[in-house]
Design a protein around this nucleic acid. Structure first.
Length: 271
DNA sequence: CCGGACGCCTGTCGGC
DNA sequence: TGCCGACAGGCGTCCG
């Protein structure tokens, strides 16, 4: 479900409702997420004020000085801000109850999401410490990708989906960015020349920015904070379009598994 | 260090 | 209609 645009959309949706509010308590109906949600988290957040909500990679950071709550939506997580008394559904696992009578509710059917408490310095938390640059920051450019990829034999698609290389490029947008850059997803990362990496870095930024502007991509169950879906699915050029004509040349879009993930590409436009 | 496979879960869909 | 396998937007961990 959530790639970076969906996480960013969630952030923009929830931040105005959370910033400056005090957390009354955490209610955990199901603690078995990707990692168990410990009672240490409950104790850490209760009574603290949310100073700011930010994002690092696909992690949402709720800053409750002196530490922060690190929230990940996994494959199927979504967030809503609701009256705290709203009856929860079966997959509504966690509520962060606020002083104003509302709550931030995490719904996550597959339970691949996670919730951690990070003591300061927050950025030194093991989940955050080794992440690559943000894709929309100047830290990601063609020269960086080119330099880091020298000698790498893994596919360029696997390479750009590696969070140590660059964060936030998930399976959908990896296929989309490679299509826009005209690079075959199976090409070894070390055999992509600098000018093509410059194009790829630009494509990553363009596709992520466009997806954020549309409120993300809703394929199955992703909804924004207010319950509306994202509208970027209609703008996808190759993802999920196996057999359909390539928007560039009309050749049927091909689907192939690369590193256990479905990849979509045009065999004619991408080399 | 690198690359690839695995496993954690539930829901949905296509084929028979 | 029902069953069953394949697959789904992530990612830390393990193994060679």
């Amino acid at each position: 479900m959530p790639e970076l645009p969906e996480v960013e959309t969630s952030l923009r949706g929830i931040a105005p409702h959370l910033t400056g509010r005090r957390v009354v308590r955490l209610v955990a109906r199901e603690r078995r997420l990707r990692w168990p949600v410990t009672e240490q988290v409950d104790a850490a957040v209760a009574g603290r004020r949310i100073e700011a909500v930010t994002r690092r990679a696909k992690y949402l950071l709720l800053h409750l000085p002196p530490g922060a709550l690190i929230l990940h939506l996994g494959m199927s997580g979504s967030l809503r801000v609701l009256p705290a008394e709203t009856p929860p559904g079966v997959h509504d696992h966690i509520d962060l109850v606020l002083e104003d009578g509302r709550c931030l509710r995490l719904r996550d059917p597959r339970r691949f999401g996670s919730l951690h408490w990070a003591e300061p310095p927050v950025e030194a938390h093991p989940l955050l410490a080794r992440l690559g640059p943000e894709p929309l920051s100047p830290g990601l450019d063609g020269a960086y990708l080119h330099r880091l990829s020298r000698g790498r034999r893994a596919s360029v698609k696997t390479f750009i989906m590696d969070s140590h290389v660059v964060v936030g490029v998930g399976n959908i947008y990896a296929s989309e960015a490679l299509f826009r850059a005209g690079i075959h997803p199976h090409r070894p990362a070390g055999r992509v020349a600098l000018p093509r990496y410059e194009g790829l870095a630009a494509s990553i930024k363009t596709v992520l920015t466009a997806a954020i502007a549309e409120g993300g991509t809703s394929l199955r169950d992703f909804v924004q904070e207010d319950g509306r879906p994202g509208y970027f699915a209609q703008a996808l050029r190759v993802y999920g379009r196996a057999g359909q004509p390539c928007p560039g040349c009309g050749e049927p879009v091909r689907q192939q598994r690369i590193g256990q993930r479905s990849s979509f590409y045009c065999p004619r436009c991408q080399r």
